[in-house]
Amino acid sequence: MIITIASGKGGTGKTTLSTNLATFLGKEAQLLDCDVEEPNAHLFLDIKWDEKQTVTAVIPEVDEEKCSHCGECGEICQFKAIAPLESTVLVFPELCHSCRGCFLVCPEDAIKEGSRELGVLETGHFNSTEFTHGRLRIGEAMAPPLIKKVKERIKPDKIAILDAPPGTSCPVVNTMMDSDYIVLVTEPTPFGLHDLKLAVGVTKKLGIPCGIVINRHGIGDNKVEQWAENQEIPVLLKIPFDRKVAEIYAEGKLLVEELPEWSGMMKDLITKIRKTVDR
């Protein structure tokens, strides 16, 4: 089972929920931090790292001897990653989407596989739970291929918990794809509700069932609950606002280890998700 924890807005408690849920589930679970731009989950966990690997993307490398300067590669490339000039062919690795159009179109077979570093993939474990995350190289703009690499580590016999990046753009969609269930974490404010609506829109477009977790319940209004009821989206959990929670989080500690009621909350949450997925 694959569960993605997402939120339209950042800072609603996505990582708090995924780290605590994974810790609660123990060896049954596997945690994958797909927020490759800002991987944070590892900061809350005592991870023993097992493996680190550099992730690369395929880019063209031109054999100038074979190149006849026909210009076909520049024509097909939608991303301007390859620029054929009269005397030479320039490649701009950071613009390349690895579609291989230039490889296929080159009549002289002058384009070979080169590579560009996207970032690193690191795997490890905390207690008995497996952990994987990716870290995008600073200045690298393309997160989706690295997210796909992180997701290749999903094991079918585990409950895979995917910590998604915030928002509703391409990296989020790439994380959510192929999930069995999406948990949307929000807060009871107009910002929270506005961004929740966008995130629900994405889950609908993907056709994946979703449920809502309201964090910091009590600080704002009840418009999120009203809206959820209207839309017939289940509210899976309401986490009351508690300054103690914010302080434990700030210290980088786990709530299931510090506050006994959190284990009950996590159990309740996974039971509700299971019921939907198994149906």
Binding site: G74, F79, K80, A81, A83, L85, F92, L95
Partner: peptide
């Protein structure tokens, strides 16, 4: 262009 406008423009000028 979503990206690569500089390269495209350079090709135009060249």
């Amino acid at each position: 262009m979503p990206q690569g406008a500089g390269v495209q423009a350079a090709m135009t000028v060249i």
